[in-house]
Design a protein around this nucleic acid. Structure first.
Lengths: 144, 144
DNA sequence: GTAAGTACCTACATAAATGTTAGTATACCG
DNA sequence: CGGTATACTAACATTTATGTAGGTACTTAC
């Protein structure tokens, strides 16, 4: 039909951007979101916040190995995606705390599940790692 | 008591390495595993393999944007952790296929859940992103 | 008064991830 | 024969991620 309709373009946009989010597509806008959540510190920040509201320095101590810079950056990314809520009390010395938004909680569930699964199954994983690095012969037995 | 016991050291090692896997600890051996699974391509490879066995080139086509190099490297990491099984038919031209091990399936469940959640909730995420970048005023209203 | 704590940011430096290109041995298609 | 496909690897280039050090403005504890 192709009749001109001012709403058609918008409808198409919404379909592209909303209805068809596909992480397998290289240029899907969901890719950056996935990366924020699965980034080195993203997972751990989300998991830490899944236990409740925390201040910046609390998170920093809780998450072993994060630098201030990385923690700040990660929190900003997650805030920008609407997963984390930042509350600034405007006091001095500074006081700010972070918590998950409802959206963030939805995502955190899966990240916590993953982290827990790894912790719980680490014995098996370590075993597999050892078994795979040990065997010298990985080639097909020669007929000779 | 501290009585010498040849099994004591080993038991302690096992406790350290196995029983207490804690992703929040900077030097926990579970950290690299978490990173392999949540790496840019790791998630997508696991998700792709969650749908069944695939050949290398099939995965490459399915996962938008992976280079051969990255796909190969990611598969090797996941194989090294015991999540992926590589089967080489020893034919020429080469034929190899990949599938999840039972361990891999356990992990994949959570990664697929995460990816699906993002796809399903992308409308809300995009909305949040837009809402957060729009507001010009994020500071506390001055009393003046 | 000195040190430490708070929640950051900026600039700089380095490490890690990722991409690009070329190459391998062989088979199949036309 | 020329081109394509397969499953890679190695070398090299580049982009991205991450870390480090120093600074801020002020408070509390010693």
């Amino acid at each position: 039909m192709e009749i001109f309709d001012p709403t058609a373009d918008r409808a198409k946009e919404m379909l592209d951007a909303y209805a068809r989010a596909d992480v397998m597509a290289a240029d899907c806008p969901s890719r950056p979101v996935l990366q924020h959540l699965t980034s080195r510190w993203g997972v751990l920040v989300m998991a830490a916040l899944a236990t409740g509201t925390h201040r910046f320095s609390e998170l920093r101590r809780r998450i072993g190995g994060v630098s201030e810079r990385m923690l700040a950056q990660t929190l900003q990314q997650l805030e920008g995606d609407g997963f984390v809520l930042r509350r600034d009390y405007g006091e001095v010395p500074p006081r700010v705390d972070y918590s998950l938004t409802p959206l963030g909680e939805g995502a955190a569930v899966h990240l916590v599940a993953l982290a827990s699964w790894i912790e719980a199954n680490f014995p098996a994983i370590a075993e597999a790692q050892a078994a795979l690095s040990a065997p010298a012969d990985r080639s097909v037995p020669a007929s000779a």
